[in-house]
C-alpha cells in the first residue's frame, strides 16, 4: 500500500513538474521532436533503400542458352537438373514449373519477337524449329546473388547447356554497390540514433540540473535514491512520449501521402516503396520507443550525478 502510494505520488509529481517547468519541458520536447523527425526520416529512407535493393537482387535473372540441336524432351531433363542445384529454391512447384526456373521454348521466343516487329515476322516466319538460329532457354533466379557466378558455372556443366548469361561483371558491381549502400544507410541510422540520444539526454540533463535544489531537498528529507529517481525517470518518459507525437504524425501521414502521390514507386516502377501499412506503424513504434528509452535513461543518469556522495 505504501509503495503504491509512493509510486502514485511519483507519477502524479512527474506530470505536475512537466507543466511546472513548462519552458524547460518545452525545450526538451522540441529537441526530442526535431531529432526524432530526422531519425524517423532516416529509418524510412534506409528501409526503403534496403527494400529496393532486395527487390532488385531477387529479380536478377540468369539465362541458360541450350544447344541449338536440343530435343524438347531433353529440355525437361536439364530443367530437372537445374532444380537440384543448391542456390535454386523453388518451394512448391505449381503446374510442374517452378517460379524461379522458367523454360522458354525457342518457338515461343520467335513468336514473341515476330509479334513485336513486321520485319522480324517476315524473316523469322519462314523458320521451323530445325532452322531457327534462336536457342531454347531456361531463365533462372537464384537465392543468393553473391553465388550467381558459381551457380552459372554449375548450370553450364549440365549436358545440353550451351552458355549461361547473367550480366557477369555488372552483377558483381551491383552487388558490391548494394552492400555499400546498405552499410552506409545502417551506419547513418545508428549514428543518428546515437546523436539523437545525446541531444535528448543533454537537454533533459539541463532540465534536471536546474532542479538540483529539488533533488537536494528530497535527499535531505530522507527520500530513498529510488524515490528521488522515479519521478524524474517518469518525467523523462513523459517528455520522450510528448516529443515523439509530431514525428509519428509526420511519419504516418507524410509517408502515406508521398506513397500515394508517387503511386508506390520512385522514378521507375522498379524502385518500389514499402507499402505504408503496417510499415508506418512499425516506424511509429520505433520512434516512441526511442523517445521513451532515451528520455528515461537520460533522466536516470542526470539524477544519478546528484545522488553520489
Amino acid at each position: 500500500m505504501k509503495s503504491f502510494r509512493i509510486l502514485n505520488r511519483n507519477i502524479r509529481d512527474s506530470f505536475k513538474s512537466v507543466f511546472r517547468n513548462f519552458s524547460l519541458s518545452l525545450a526538451s520536447v522540441s529537441c526530442t521532436t526535431i531529432t526524432l523527425i530526422v531519425v524517423s526520416l532516416s529509418i524510412m529512407l534506409s528501409l526503403n533503400v534496403n527494400n529496393f535493393t532486395d527487390i532488385i537482387e531477387k529479380n536478377v535473372t540468369a539465362v541458360a542458352f541450350l544447344d541449338s540441336d536440343i530435343e524438347p524432351e531433353q529440355i525437361e531433363k536439364i530443367y530437372d537438373k537445374i532444380l537440384t542445384l543448391d542456390n535454386i529454391e523453388c518451394g512448391d512447384v505449381i503446374n510442374k514449373y517452378c517460379e524461379n526456373v522458367q523454360p522458354m521454348d525457342k518457338m515461343t521466343i520467335s513468336k514473341e519477337m515476330m509479334d513485336s516487329s513486321d520485319v522480324l515476322k517476315r524473316v523469322m516466319g519462314e523458320w521451323d524449329r530445325e532452322e531457327s538460329p534462336i536457342q531454347d532457354t531456361i531463365q533462372v533466379k537464384v537465392v543468393d546473388i553473391n553465388l550467381m557466378s558459381k551457380t552459372a558455372k554449375e548450370i553450364e556443366q549440365i549436358d545440353g547447356v550451351d552458355i549461361v548469361k547473367y550480366g557477369a561483371g555488372t552483377i558483381e558491381k551491383l552487388v558490391s554497390t548494394f552492400v555499400v549502400v546498405r552499410k552506409i544507410s545502417i551506419v547513418a541510422v545508428i549514428a543518428l540514433v546515437i546523436v539523437t540520444a545525446f541531444l535528448i539526454a543533454n537537454t533533459i540533463k539541463i532540465t534536471i540540473m536546474s532542479r538540483r535544489k529539488e533533488i537536494e531537498i528530497m535527499r535531505l528529507v530522507g527520500a530513498s535514491n529510488i524515490n528521488i529517481r522515479l519521478p524524474f525517470i517518469f518525467e523523462g518518459l513523459i517528455l520522450g512520449i510528448l516529443g515523439s507525437i509530431i514525428p509519428i504524425i509526420i511519419s504516418i501521414y507524410g509517408y502515406t501521402t508521398i506513397y500515394n502521390h508517387l503511386d508506390g514507386h520512385v522514378i521507375t516502377p522498379l524502385i518500389k516503396l514499402i507499402p505504408p501499412t503496417p510499415f508506418v506503424y512499425y516506424i511509429s513504434l520505433a520512434i516512441v520507443v526511442i523517445g521513451m528509452v532515451v528520455g528515461m535513461f537520460a533522466s536516470a543518469r542526470a539524477v544519478r550525478k546528484y545522488l553520489k556522495i
Partner: peptide, 10 residues
C-alpha cells in the same frame, strides 16, 4: 508536506 510525501504517508 513534501517531506512526508516522499516517505509515502497517507
Amino acid at each position: 508536506a513534501y517531506a512526508l510525501e516522499v516517505l509515502g504517508l497517507p
